[in-house]
Nucleic acid binder design. Structure first.
Lengths: 148, 148
DNA sequence: CTTGCCTTTGACGTCAACGTCAAGTTTTAG
DNA sequence: CTAAAACTTGACGTTGACGTCAAAGGCAAG
């Protein structure tokens, strides 16, 4: 199929598809006039790529990981990479869960305050003043904690 | 305290702190010479802001939500806003969990392939852990569409 | 006073993941 | 055939959360 149909079937713009190709997330055969032609499997591939994007992975990372996912080539470094990314996602989930709890406290207090007419201060709330670790700060730059 | 100390104590750059102020995430008193002076509570406030950023909220959203979290002012619309954002976070967690599972499958397959020396393609019939959500992880580009 | 770090505002740079517009070619419909 | 739709590459625009100068003024020590 050509790029337009692929775009329609995946819900991804043609611009994005060309971008993905530019980032080596996708390959395409070319007709002799230069038009891209994709196999059926491209649909699934794009959905996978989208999913990884949604998970917060960068195109660079995805490009490095997909060889394993797609072509079945796995090196120890790649495995390591996968594990690292899994860890990032894990940490992200933890952070989100934490923030959600905090939001819950806020919502509860606010609701109560609306009922009682008092101010909605939840206090220091669930845990200690969050030492939120800088999770996905670009690069491998990690936040230093209590170091001075 | 002045901006430098606040930056050191929060691990946030002075540029970011000025940016936060610009975005109304933070206020500061000024000395008669124009320098910003912050109370102790600013530290906690910044950590909260950072946490919300990490949760994926934009500065605009945070600016709209913090009045409730910080000052205890809650309107019904604000409560609604909070609920909406909570929902976003929830969905984000779901997505991340989903992707993590998928990554787990990939890692398992890849590890197995490294042990057995075979390519890390999940078999078509086996336990098939790599076929999450009906999308095949084999994205092999060899398949051609019906020509002719 | 001078030295030297700290702070101020202003303004341009960056990076990612595309959007959008332009101008030309190819495919398709009639 | 023509006209429209789809495709091509190229290149500049956008948004968010800052980074990075630059020029100037402030503040405590010697």
């Amino acid at each position: 199929m050509r790029i337009g149909e692929l775009a329609r079937r995946t819900g991804v713009s043609t611009r994005a598809l060309r971008y993905y190709e530019e980032q080596n997330l996708l390959t395409a055969e070319r007709s002799n006039s230069g038009q891209r032609h994709y196999p059926e499997t491209a649909v699934a591939r794009i959905l996978l790529v989208r999913e990884l994007f949604t998970a917060g992975l960068s195109s660079k990372i995805i490009a490095e990981l997909t060889p394993c996912v797609i072509d079945g080539k796995a090196t120890p470094e790649l495995l390591d990479r996968l594990a690292v990314e899994r860890g990032h996602i894990d940490q992200h989930i933890v952070d989100l869960t934490h923030t959600r709890s905090r939001l819950d406290s806020v919502i509860a207090s606010a609701s109560a305050s609306m009922d009682t007419g008092t101010s909605c201060q939840p206090g220091p709330a669930s845990t200690a003043p969050a030492q939120v670790s800088g999770v996905t700060l670009r690069g491998d730059q990690e936040a230093r904690e209590g170091e001075g």
